[in-house]
């Protein structure tokens, strides 16, 4: 049985606007700088503070772990606070890919590896067995282009078959590859 591949994040409702402009600056100069909110940060805020889901529910809806969700949410708040206080524009675009595992480097064979089992600690290199390993500051969130980020799954209302949502094609026009029923967006 092949494991089901989970999509990393789901952004169910892209924002209706591209951002916000400040006005009436007391300094007399309008700041040209902007703060960029990623789609998943917007989404985290929307789910929690607009739709009223708790972090547990919202992280499940975005298909990310609780710690990852907490990071996304905290980052959204920090950015908005910065824009408010410093009178900066807010743009909403792009996104990041988040990893839940930690990365290490082996001192002997120089390979890099992650620890997919969070509850077990790693003591030696999985390749050469050397015990001198070092936690590696692998930026565990990386910029990625918009198209890939916006991947969503559409679920067949009849047979449950899931396929990637096609950008620019309304889901209601998609036809199931399996049973030919018309699709609906997977809202779960």
């Amino acid at each position: 049985m092949s494991p089901r591949i989970k999509m990393l994040r789901k952004v169910l409702n892209p924002p209706q606007i591209n951002g916000f402009n400040p006005y009436g600056s007391k300094l007399g100069i309008e700041s040209r700088e902007s703060v960029n909110l990623f789609y998943e940060e917007y989404e985290a805020l929307r789910l929690c503070d607009y739709d009223g889901y708790n972090h547990q529910e919202a992280s499940a809806m975005m298909s990310v772990s609780r710690p990852t969700f907490t990071r996304i949410y905290a980052s959204a708040l920090r950015k908005i606070a910065k824009a408010f206080v410093e009178g900066k524009q807010i743009t909403i675009k792009g996104g990041k890919v988040y990893f839940d595992s930690d990365w290490y480097q082996c001192h002997q064979c120089r390979c890099y590896f992650n620890n997919p089992e969070k509850d077990k600690s790693i003591e030696s290199c999985p390749l050469c067995g050397n015990h001198q390993i070092e936690k590696f500051e692998y930026d565990n969130s990386t910029d990625e282009n918009e198209d890939e980020l916006m991947t969503e799954l559409c679920k067949c209302p009849n047979c449950g078959f899931e396929q990637e949502h096609q950008a620019k094609t309304p889901c209601k026009q998609l036809v199931c590859k399996k049973c030919h029923t018309t699709f609906q967006r997977n809202e779960s």
Partner: peptide
Amino acid sequence: NKIISGEFGMKIKSLLDSLKIQMIVHKE
């Protein structure tokens, strides 16, 4: 349980991460 390769793309990393398959990046 593990995959050894020279590089994994971003999307691949996140997929393998969610499947709990260990990635070993060997650049030689």
